[in-house]
Write a protein that binds this DNA or RNA. Structure first.
Lengths: 183, 183
DNA sequence: GCTTAATATGCCAACTATTGCATATGCAAA
DNA sequence: TTTGCATATGCAATAGTTGGCATATTAAGC
């Protein structure tokens, strides 16, 4: 029960359809808690059955009908209860590090290329986070609580992307990648 | 199919029983890919059925019998194939950040305490990583490939723990935790 | 003598996640 | 005009994970 909470948290902002939730997930909480659209639809059904959200079908002529979900009182209570329970330590699955543990039996060149790909991935993500930061959070000291939370999430994202990039540099240097600084 | 690879990688070092794998996981790859003992035993059965590992029962008089697994040729090939495939981006599930997204609707004091608990958790882990580093990797430039991989994993661990700790400081400062520096 | 911890493996049920497929519409570009 | 994309939701099957429980032995501490 944790994706469900991510969904309930998203619904705090405003009632949303599964499709909208999926879209916003991709740009916000989703960076810290992935979910596919199938997962979101299924979870919404489950939450509706449990009475934590209420779905209402909105007829549309030009597009398929939407089902817009909103938090129920019961859902708010569930969120409050969840917020008071100790948070699980973050679960990380870093396949690249597993691969590194096999160095010596796997081709070193292949691993170097992996790290370079990873570097590109994290550079993109960092650029995205920084753009959001510049656009939305120029004055972090002045923020209201809700915005403070988002700001801190973004800070965490930026810090960890920077760290990962620094690690990539180190790793390529150690593994003797000639073109490391050229990329 | 990814826990399976972590197990195969572990077996590169030497043949091991499920119990041993579980123990070593907790101190090595497990920091980057969690697995419970049930998962490991089940996965070993599956790998044995698929012919990637071969298990041999070792009779013991003083302890329950062990089943020691070793890589088969087929298992080595599977590892090689896996090592050449692009690595999935890391999957992170950060419940604490999800909770932060709900700031304003959840009690700020509760969140501050969460962050402090997290700070303690990451301090412990950093201390552990640093101890391993001091003990086993005093001269990283001289390492053989296999050890290089482990060293880089450890470096990643240390860097990300340091980053998370720095973030905790920032977060507590922003959320106005009076006793932030006292802890 | 009794309890607890460590060693060593396993079953089963429930839950969570992923993949592939299916449906239906409207719009814009090739 | 066909292709592809965005909107919008869903099912079914498989794969992966978690938690509770069960079993059996030995050694150490109370």
């Amino acid at each position: 029960m944790a994706l469900s909470h991510a969904i309930l948290v998203s619904l705090l902002d405003r009632p949303q359809s599964g499709y909208e939730l999926g879209k916003r997930f991709d740009r916000t909480v989703g960076f810290f808690w992935k979910a596919s659209h199938q997962q979101i639809y299924q979870e919404l059904h489950k939450l509706a059955r449990a009475g934590l959200v209420r779905g209402e079908t909105v007829e549309q002529t030009e597009r398929p009908n939407r089902i817009v979900y909103e938090l129920t009182e019961c859902g708010r209570e569930a969120l409050d209860a969840w917020s008071r329970k100790a948070t699980d330590p973050p679960s990380v699955k870093e396949e690249l590090i597993v691969k590194l543990f096999a160095l010596g039996d796997v081709d070193q060149q292949v691993v170097r290329e992996e790290i370079e790909r990873r570097q590109a991935f994290h550079r993109d993500r960092l650029a995205y986070y920084e753009a959001v930061m510049d656009e939305h959070y120029p004055e972090p000291a002045q923020l209201k609580p809700r915005q403070q939370g988002r700001y801190l999430g973004l800070r965490m994202g930026i810090l960890s992307e920077q760290t990962t990039l620094a690690w990539c540099e180190e790793a390529l240097a150690l593994l003797g990648c000639e073109g490391a600084s050229a990329h």
